[in-house]
Design a protein around this nucleic acid. Structure first.
Lengths: 148, 148
DNA sequence: ACTGAAATGCCACCTAC
DNA sequence: GTAGGTGGCATTTCAGT
């Protein structure tokens, strides 16, 4: 993992369809050398996937919500995590420091859909308490992976 | 934007390097038809970019931080937003409802780097108050775009 | 670990329908 | 939207440094 590997990672982060020749021209390596490095970057898990970044509004998901979750004392934390990982509307879920256990970020079609999500959480019996915030506008946003 | 377009978006979200023929086989369309649709999806901004998803730890950025920001009353909000958009360590920045103005999400090399980021924010004169939380572990994470 | 060249195969594009 | 032909790359491989 040297500077050239990092440069390749940054280039492909910007354009996953860049050819080996194009990358080579930028980093000053032959296509073969770039091919070798790319193979290793994928094998070692440095590059997880090549993904199209979809505009969420364009697929009917204009609402971004942040849900603070305090888990119920009896909750099966593993099951909670598995459930979050499976839901396509959950774009992020972190165990965090501070007064709350988890921060869950979602994309939703509407405020009604946000409410439905909260109902699902509650009916699952996982949460003791929650607090929801909505994004009014977005300055920087990570790529959005549309999982259907 | 019909079901087939959404299917194409989801497929490319999973694998940006899928060929027109592969996509066509799944959605039941000829390569030409897929090509037309793909062109339109990109033109209309539904597909923003094709991007490699990089493992942040692999490029030396293992720490995820959430910084809640209350802007100073005199702060130039436009300048703040421009600054956030420019910083490569800022992975997300949203204007949010609730007691705080902004939620800024960062990736950092270490806790020291998080502290440096907060110092920068304060020295910029933008913020009145802030609160920082750290991710202890991550269940779901959006793709990470490595901007060098 | 990288170069350079050669070959194979595939892919996107175009035309015609 | 389909089907088919074509030209051009991109990836891959290999021998050599």
């Amino acid at each position: 993992m040297d500077d050239i590997d990092r440069k390749i990672a940054a280039l492909l982060s910007d354009d996953a369809r860049a050819s080996l020749a194009q990358i080579g021209a930028v980093v000053g390596l032959s296509t073969s050398a770039v091919n070798d490095r790319l193979r290793r970057l994928i094998e070692r898990g440095v590059i997880r996937r090549m993904s199209a970044d979809i505009a969420p509004e364009a697929v009917g998901l204009p609402v971004t919500g942040f849900v603070w979750v305090a888990l119920a004392p009896v909750a099966d934390e593993g099951a909670f995590r598995a459930a979050m990982a499976q839901l396509p509307r959950v774009t992020a879920c972190h165990h965090v420091t501070g007064p709350w256990s988890y921060l869950v970020q979602i994309r939703a079609a509407s405020l009604d859909a946000v409410e439905d999500f909260l109902s699902e959480l509650k009916s699952g019996g996982w949460i003791a308490r929650s607090e929801t915030m909505l994004a009014l506008s977005t300055v920087v946003e990570p790529p959005f992976r549309y999982r259907g």
